[in-house]
Simulated assay, not measured.
Amino acid sequence: MALRFPSGRQRTILAMLLMQEGNLVSLDRITEGIWGGDPPVTAKGQIQTCISALRRQLRKFGDDHVIVTSLVGYTIHIPTGSLDSAVFRRMINSGRELAAARKIRDAAAELRAALALWRGPAVASDVESGVVRTMAIRLEEERIRTTEECIELELKLDRHHDLVAELSELVKAYPLRESLRALHMLALYRSARQADALESFQEVRAILREELGLEPSDQLDRLHKSILKRENSLTIAPRTGLGSESTGKVDTIIPRRLPPTIAEFTGREEMADTIAPFSPCGCYVVL
Rank of each mutant, 00 (worst) to 15 (best):
L183M: 10
E140T: 15
I104Q: 07
V250C: 01
R112P: 00
R112I: 06
E148S: 11
R222N: 10
E270H: 05
P121K: 03
G248W: 04
L153C: 13
H160F: 11
C283F: 13
D64E: 14
V204Q: 09
D64N: 10
A195M: 11
L163N: 08
Q57R: 15
D196Y: 03
D126H: 13
L83A: 08
S85H: 14
D38R: 12
Y74E: 04
E128Q: 09
L58F: 10
K172V: 04
K156M: 12
L167G: 03
H160Q: 14
G267S: 12
A124N: 09
A107L: 08
L176T: 08
K103G: 04
A124K: 11
S244G: 03
G36W: 05
E152T: 05
M91P: 00
D218V: 02
I34G: 00
R222W: 05
R193M: 05
M185F: 04
F265S: 08
Y189V: 00
F278T: 13
R11P: 00
L111S: 07
T80A: 15
I51W: 11
S200W: 00
Q202T: 09
A206P: 08
E140V: 09
H65E: 15
P238F: 09
T274Y: 07
T147M: 12
L27G: 14
S179L: 01
L58M: 11
P238S: 09
M16L: 14
E21C: 14
T49Y: 13
A206L: 14
I30L: 15
S200P: 00
G243H: 08
L228H: 04
L115C: 10
D28T: 13
L24N: 06
L71G: 15
S82R: 05
R181E: 06
A100S: 12
P277M: 07
F265N: 11
L98N: 03
K229T: 07
T134I: 05
Y74G: 05
M1Y: 07
E178I: 12
I67W: 10
C283M: 13
S246K: 06
V131M: 13
Q194D: 01
V123W: 06
L198G: 01
H77G: 04
R90D: 11
I47G: 02
P238Q: 04
A276K: 14
I207H: 07
E152G: 15
E199A: 14
A101D: 12
I34K: 03
I253A: 00
G33F: 09
L71H: 15
A2H: 12
L117N: 10
I227P: 08
D218H: 02
F61P: 03
A136V: 12
M91N: 01
K225T: 07
R56Y: 08
R181T: 13
W35G: 06
L183F: 02
E199L: 10
R11L: 11
V123Q: 02
E110L: 05
P121Y: 01
L186Q: 14
Y174M: 11
T75C: 13
E270R: 11
K156L: 03
A116F: 04
E148L: 14
S52N: 10
G243T: 09
R181Y: 04
A107H: 05
D196W: 01
S7C: 08
A263H: 01
L117I: 09
